[in-house]
Design a protein around this nucleic acid. Structure first.
Lengths: 119, 119
DNA sequence: AGAAAATTCAACCTAATGGTTGACAATCGG
DNA sequence: CCGATTGTCAACCATTAGGTTGAATTTTCT
């Protein structure tokens, strides 16, 4: 099947996808300490420059980092708004892991925030 | 030299990967209303049984659902502990999206994670 | 000007994803 | 027993993911 319409239309898709890779989570952790160049981000991972560059691009397309050019180096900073969105989505399930499984409450919550796959 | 923790945090990998797909998030939303069979999970997505079965398997391997057999039907229920873990991971970044970008606080947070013997 | 550095880009590889169909295994209802 | 229902499995297909290398680009240094 041609999956032509598989583009990332959903910010949650992009955010969760970006977070599903330990290298990228590690880069975010590194960026928590301050801005970093691509090379500095690559260094702890024994990975080529180009490889790190791809990971940074994934984070960038998810809106999780922002890039500024200073001479020949690209300086990356964290941009955590999409994380907030993801965290809000996850917090929706608190009643389940806390054991407070009120079905009616779940129903209302799900209706309010349902992602309709048919548009 | 920044030797960040690159250990395999497979649980977060699996959880975030499972959540990165809108069909699977939709299935979780559906399961919030109560237990469902594979067929009932597949139905809103205009997708083959086998396709839905694969998505359920991804959720299962991430520990996000549990399965019980009742005759020929498999009954799926939500199992949200991994979501809690992911939510805790995300909560770590609150200071960033809330604008309270205290670098020292970020550093301490990061140090805590890598169990620095120098405290 | 010319060399080195930081980064991207293009091409390539392999494995994983998301989907299908068709065959098979149970199980339920006549 | 027979046929329909429920689901898995295996094979296949196209696209994406994650990685590499090597060439190209931009900027800095001497």
């Amino acid at each position: 099947m041609l999956m032509l319409n598989h583009m990332v239309e959903n910010r949650l898709d992009a955010t969760f996808h970006a977070l599903a890779d330990p290298t990228r989570r590690g880069m975010l952790a590194s960026l928590a300490l301050g801005e970093k160049s691509i090379g500095e981000l690559a260094e702890p991972f024994a990975m080529s420059f180009a490889g790190a560059s791809k990971h940074v691009k994934v984070l960038e397309e998810a809106g999780l980092i922002a890039r500024r050019k200073a001479g020949r180096t690209h300086i990356i900073r964290i941009e955590a708004k999409p994380l907030e969105e993801a965290e809000r989505w996850l917090r929706q399930w608190e009643k389940f892991w806390s054991g407070r499984l009120d079905r009616l409450e779940a129903l209302l919550e799900a209706d309010k925030k349902k992602e309709n796959p048919h548009g």
